[in-house]
Design a protein around this nucleic acid. Structure first.
Lengths: 334, 334
DNA sequence: TGCGCTGTTGCACATGTTTGCAATCCGGTG
DNA sequence: CACCGGATTGCAAACATGTGCAACAGCGCA
C-alpha cells in the first residue's frame, strides 16, 4: 500500500504560490486575497487535496476529536444517545471517536488514555467511572470531560444528571392514585447512581404515602433481567399490583413474563412503568408508561459546554435535567 | 484552557536519555536495553506521558484510525453491527471514528472526506454509497475501503454481502411447506441491494413453486413501515396467509398491527418471517422466525482484511456470507 | 518625490514524533 | 594489545501543517 496523500506543497506549486498561502486559504479569517484563494482552491480540488487534520491538530493544539466512552452500545437507549451526540458533534464541526468499554476493571481508564493519545479535545463518558488519577490527568492536559448519568463529586468535569428521585416519586403517587396497594421496584444489580436514585425516590415517596415497597435486584439492565425479576416478584405470597422497572428493557421483559407466563392482565391486575422511553416502549405490544430521557437536550448541553470558551460558568456544579412522564397504557387512569 | 501535554522531550530529560530513546521505549521490537526502557517507562508513568498518536501517525503514515460510516445508528441491527466492529477494531489495536450520515445527497462523500482529513487507515461503509470519484481518491491515497451490504462493481474495496436471494428462496419453500398459498413480501422503499435481493429470491422461488407474490413497498425499514404495510396487505381482497418482511423491524410492526388491529392469529392464520434477528425478535411477544445476520463474522472478515499486508487475495472479488434461518414461532411446522 | 498606511505574501521556526545512519561501548578472541 | 561483532544510543532529517515577523506592493496624501 503506497499511502500517498497530496500535500499542501504540491498544491502550492500547482497554484504558483507559497505553502503558507495554501494553509491560509484553508483557514477562515486568514489574510489572503480573494483571487489567490480562488486559484488555490481550484488547484486543491483538482489534485484532491484535503488538509491533514493530524498535522493541523499538532500545530493548533486542537484536534477536533471528541471521545465517546460507552459500553453496551447496542442497547436502545445508549444507541439513541450516541446518535444524538455524534450528530450534534458533527454539526458543531467536531468528530466522534467511539470507544467501547466493558465491565472489567480499568476499562474506562484505558479508554481515556486512548483519548489522551489522540489528543482529543474532550471526552464524554456514558458508562462506568474513570479513576480519579486519570480524570486529573485529563483535566491537567486541558481535556474537557463530561459525565452523563454518572455521579461524581470532584470538580472539573461537567456532570449531567436527571431528576431520578423525583421521577420515582411521581410514579409512586401515580400508582397510588390508580388504586394500587402493593408496590414493587424491579432493579438491576448494576447499582449506578441513576438506577439507585429512581429506587430511592420511589421508596421514599411510597413511605410518605403509607406504603411499603418490595425491591428486587437482578442482573444487568436488559430484557432477560426483567423476565427473571418477574419470576421473583410475581410468585410472592401477596403479589404486587404495581411495578416500577428501572429501565424500559427490564419493563419489557417483565411484561412479557407477566402476560405470557403468568397470564396477568396489564393494567387491570398489574400496573407497570419503565424508564428511558426507548422505541419499543411505544410499540403496541407494550404501550408502556415511562419516563423519557431528554437525549437531545443532554447532547445539546454537553456539546454547548464543550464549545464554550470559559467553561467555568454556573454549569461547573453540574446540570440536572427533567425527565417527562409519558402516559401510555400500562398504568390505570391517565 | 491551557492544553499542556507532556512531551517525549520532558520524559527524556527526566530519565537522562535522548528523545529517540523514549520513542524506542514505546515501540515494541525497537532496540533498547531492558534497563533504560524500565527507567524511561518509570519516568513516563510519573509525568503522565502518553505517546502523541497524531505525531506518530504523521511519521509512520499510519494513524490507527478506522472510519465507520453509518446512518441510523440507533437501529437495532446497525447498533449491533457497530458494536461488533468497534470491539474487534479495538482488540486489533485500531480505534473507531464514527461518522453519521443521513439520506441527503453527498452525505457519504463528506464522511469519506473527513476520513481523508484524519488520514484514516481505512473506512467501513454500512450505509449509502459514495461517489465513484471519492472512492477513487480514497484508494489512490492508500486508504482501504469496506462496503457492507452495499453493491458496487468497481474493484478495490472489499465487498461483504449476504446470500439474500437464497434466504428469500428458503423462506418461500418454508411457507409452502407450512401450507401457505397466498404469499406476500413487505419491503421498504429504500431499495438497497440487500433488500431487493431478498425480494427477488423470494419471488423467483415462489414462481418456481407455482405461486404468485404480492409485493408492497413503503417507507423506510422501521416499525412504522411495518404497520402501514400491514394496512395495505391485510385489507386485500384475498388476504395473504404468509408474509416475508424485509427486516425484523418491519415484521414487528406488521405483527403488532395484524394481532392487535386485525385480530389475526399468528402463525395459525398468518405466517410471518423477518430478517436480521434483532434482539426483539427473540422477545416472547414476537418469537419471530427470521434470518440472523452473521455480525461477528462480518466484522471479523472486515477487520482481518484491513490488517492484512497484501489485501489482493481471493477476497478482492468480494465476500458472500451465509445468513442462518432461526426457527421460532411465527411460521408453522418447524 | 517622500512618507505612512493597509493588505498580501514568503521565510523560517514551531509542533511531537519516528527512524536511518553513524558513533560508542563492551565482551570475546587471536 | 588489536580487532571484530553485536547491542545500544544519539544526531539529525523527515512528516504536514500553522503563524509571527518582516518584506513588499500599492495607494493616497503632503
Amino acid at each position: 500500500m503506497p499511502k500517498e496523500f497530496v500535500s499542501a506543497q504540491e498544491v502550492a506549486e500547482k497554484a504558483g504560490v507559497s505553502r503558507s498561502a495554501v494553509s491560509r486559504a484553508f483557514t477562515p479569517g486568514a489574510s489572503v486575497s480573494a483571487e489567490t484563494r480562488r486559484r488555490i482552491l481550484a488547484a486543491a480540488e483538482e489534485l484532491g487535496y484535503h488538509v491533514n487534520h493530524l498535522a493541523r491538530g499538532l500545530m493548533r493544539n486542537e484536534t477536533g476529536i471528541v471521545c465517546l466512552v460507552v459500553s453496551e452500545v447496542a442497547t436502545p437507549y445508549r444507541s439513541v444517545l450516541l446518535r444524538a451526540l455524534t450528530q450534534q458533534l458533527q454539526s458543531a464541526g467536531k468528530v466522534a471517536m467511539l470507544i467501547n468499554t466493558d465491565r472489567t476493571d480499568g476499562s474506562v481508564d484505558r479508554a481515556l488514555q486512548q483519548a489522551i493519545r489522540y489528543r482529543a479535545d474532550a471526552s464524554i463518558i456514558m458508562s462506568g467511572m474513570p479513576d480519579k488519577s486519570i480524570v486529573q490527568l485529563c483535566l491537567r492536559s486541558g481535556q474537557r470531560l463530561v459525565l452523563i448519568n454518572r455521579d461524581d463529586d470532584q470538580p472539573g468535569p461537567l456532570r449531567i444528571n436527571l431528576d431520578d428521585e423525583e421521577c420515582g416519586a411521581r410514579i409512586a403517587t401515580a400508582f397510588v392514585r390508580a388504586g394500587c396497594k402493593r408496590l414493587a421496584f424491579a432493579n438491576s444489580e448494576a447499582g449506578t447512581p441513576s438506577l439507585m436514585g429512581r429506587e430511592r425516590g420511589f421508596q421514599m415517596a411510597a413511605k410518605r404515602l403509607g406504603l411499603d415497597v418490595v425491591v428486587k435486584r437482578y442482573g444487568q439492565t436488559g430484557y432477560e433481567a426483567g423476565r427473571v425479576l418477574a419470576q421473583r416478584l410475581l410468585t410472592l405470597p401477596d403479589r404486587p399490583d404495581a411495578v416500577f422497572c428501572a429501565t424500559d428493557l427490564i419493563a419489557c421483559g417483565f411484561m412479557d413474563a407477566a402476560r405470557h407466563q403468568f397470564r396477568i392482565a396489564i393494567p387491570d391486575e398489574l400496573c407497570v412503568a419503565g424508564f428511558d422511553d426507548i422505541e419499543q416502549a411505544a410499540w403496541s405490544s407494550y404501550e408502556l408508561t415511562t419516563f423519557s430521557q431528554p437525549v437531545t437536550e443532554i447532547a445539546e448541553k454537553a456539546i454547548k459546554w464543550l464549545m464554550e470558551d470559559a467553561p467555568e460558568g454556573e454549569m461547573s456544579t453540574g446540570v440536572r435535567l427533567h425527565a417527562d412522564l409519558v402516559w401510555r397504557g400500562t398504568v390505570r387512569g391517565a
